[in-house]
Amino acid sequence: MKTTNWYTIQGNENDVVVSTRVRLARNLQKYPFAPHMTEGQAAEICALAREVYPEADGWEYTDFGGLTTAERRSYAEKHLVSREFAESQYKGGLLSKNSVHIMVLEEDHLRLQSIYPGFALEEAYRDVSSADELLDSRAEIAYNEKFGYLTHCPTNLGTGMRASVMLFLPACSKAHLIRGFEEQLGKIGLTIRGMTGEGSRAEGRLFQISNQITLGVTEEETIHKLSGIVEQIVKQERELRGILCKGKRDENLVRNQVRRAYGTLMYATLLQTEEMVHLYEEIRLGASLGMIENLNPVRVDEMLFSCMPNTLAASEECKTPEERDEVRAKKAREILTRE
């Protein structure tokens, strides 16, 4: 991949905010959705997308039909495509330029997405919106005045926009605030879900907040609302981290846990994904609080995303799971100690 990986770049408020994404679902007026589409129609949509976003203007096209399973899943692990797209039987592709990645033939004909490290809702919306303008100037986008942008699933009708912010909330999670957030956010059309800790939302420390409602609200209202909430939660998380480390004794407890996790990462020979994610959560807090010399949160995020199973399998020589665990341990250490 030629484009720089977003998670290697320092973003705003990155002690708490890992990444920001804004996605627009767009469809072409005269074509049915994937399950009802002929191969000819699918090829036409691909051709049109590549015409609207040409290589000559810096767009890079990746044909997903020509990738291995691990390669496709690696894109999902990096949040550049949806999980469904990585597993899809339909032969679509991905158009990429700077922060923008466009899935061609997801469940909607096109899914335009902009992803940024840190807190960058305005920037992500700006970028994805200008990609949308390009499409609008060249193709007839499915739209009606009542339901707005027409999408395969009615849950996306209206703006077709899903804005989401990934947050690292160890202190809020420890203080059992997530359930309360869930309730409050639900009332205003937003939702929070855990990114780690299988199913049990309360356990993990990585969360994603996004808008649930897309019809009857403008893009600006949604971005504004989400921004306000994220700012409040960031403030809350920082306050609680302060409390978590108040006084020598409490600070030592946190520091002890963080540095033991770091020690494990420095010396492990075999490292499984689950353990890596757990250690990530420990040292990310330490890096945010300056408890480990020369380690900042970006580097820790780079470790997480580079060491996910499919990304490793797609980029490194490792065949068996054991080999992969060995490569993961080495890779994690390399990234964390790199100058």
């Binding site: 469809n27 072409l28 007026q29 074509y31 049915p32 959705f33 399950p35 009802h36 469940e107 499915a142 009606n144 005045e145 009542k146 339901f147 707005g148 942008y149 027409l150 395969h152 699933c153 009615p154 849950t155 009708l157 209206g158 703006t159 059309g189 409602i213 897309t214 019809l215 009857g216 609200v217 403008t218 893009e219 600006e220």
Partner: peptide, 30 residues
């Protein structure tokens, strides 16, 4: 899920109650 963009016109009456339940509204602004 619907079959094509045109389905929203053909089945508007049938779809509106579910759409309203999902979003709380049924008219686009934006």
């Amino acid at each position: 899920k619907v079959g094509c963009p045109g389905c929203y016109e053909v089945f508007e009456a049938e779809l509106i109650p579910s759409i309203r339940r999902i979003h709380g509204r049924s008219t686009h602004t934006g």
